[in-house]
Design a protein around this nucleic acid. Sequence first.
DNA 1: CTACTATTCAAGTATTCTATTGAATTAAAT
DNA 2: ATTTAATTCAATAGAATACTTGAATAGTAG
Lengths: 221, 221
Amino acid sequence: MSSGDFKHDIFAQFARVGKALGNGNRLEIMEFLAQGERSVDDLAGIAGLTVANTSQHLQQLRQAGLVASRKQGLKVYYRLSSNEVIDLLRSLRGVAERHLAEVDRLVNSYLAVKDNLEPVPRAELLTRAREGLVTVIDVRPTEEYAAGHVPGAVNIPLSELEGHLDRFEPGQQIVAYCRGPYCVLAFDAVEKLRARGYQAWRLEEGFPEWQTAGLPVERNK
Amino acid sequence: MSSGDFKHDIFAQFARVGKALGNGNRLEIMEFLAQGERSVDDLAGIAGLTVANTSQHLQQLRQAGLVASRKQGLKVYYRLSSNEVIDLLRSLRGVAERHLAEVDRLVNSYLAVKDNLEPVPRAELLTRAREGLVTVIDVRPTEEYAAGHVPGAVNIPLSELEGHLDRFEPGQQIVAYCRGPYCVLAFDAVEKLRARGYQAWRLEEGFPEWQTAGLPVERNK
DNA sequence: CTACTATTCAAGTATTCTATTGAATTAAAT
DNA sequence: ATTTAATTCAATAGAATACTTGAATAGTAG
């Protein structure tokens, strides 16, 4: 057997994983799976796809070794097959961010006030939170918060933010986070809070990255 | 702009990078570019593709931000656009290695057979190197060597091996290593060296395994 | 057993991708 | 100016992919 055959075959295997990464809907699905298990139905709703289509995407991801599933009752729950997959997705984002001007353009145009939205690095958040300087809010839905969150963070889903503004002192410093660097929940929260006169920032990246960085995680009992 | 549009667009951008990773020939091309700049013609020869086809693949890679190029005289030299790309490729390999049974099967059935030519176990290499019995060469690109290598190993990237054959005494014992069990650099080096009459072997596995086995590592200052 | 739900499978269509071919650029050499 | 070499562009056929639709399967509840 020649080394040419071997190389051809082995690169074809690696390309299976690459192919699975080559579709925006699949990447979005994995973004949600980075937060924990989801049923096919959940994912279809979140991603705005039909259930059959979502199921097909999930099977492609499984064949590429990116996700795994378990069946419980009527539902099939999918998850990322390991934390290595989160690293892979982060690398992909990193390269895209660094080398694709189009990504910058999109991020800048979505939030014209990007300069003011300077994200807070993870390390800095830990320090500032310990000193009691900031309030950390988790703007993801309650179920996601319950499955794991930054220690000390208060859960205020974006949809309920307006109704909970009285929890904050005027001028208070607030840091919001959600699912990841391109999760728009925290962006929107920061915008709303600033419109009300609070000092608000977005945590660099989101909870999945926080977790895989080995930082402490708190769970609801 | 709605946040749905934003998400759709941003994931579509990430998918551009994923798509570029979804072809074995492109991955093979990038593997060679990891060793340094190459012209289109070189790459076509190495990958066994036509020049026109190789050029098209390279343009896809460039549009995905994975490679960059410079023109000098008649030739266009391509390179990986940054070290982040190497990380991305490593992650991809890692996920494939860990989750795709097919990769294991290929490695075991193809490489293991050729490896009957006495691979040198790690422990044995240490002993023999201390006794001055063998010369150890690291055939990875210079940057990877600089980031960490087997103590005493000489860096001779595979691409430069032909030009450095005068460093070896006739009949000298040489052990080559590179990135891992299916990295073909060391294998090709051994083939070349044997063709020239040297006693050459491949180190069992590669540098990452050496490092994670807790064996000593040397770094450039 | 029957009805119901969640998911998967299978088939069809429009779209995109791969690799080939030959022509068109671009830069250097004569 | 003409020739040559390296690369890119353009057109093409055949393969693969994405999404839709409707049917099939497996588990649950009444």
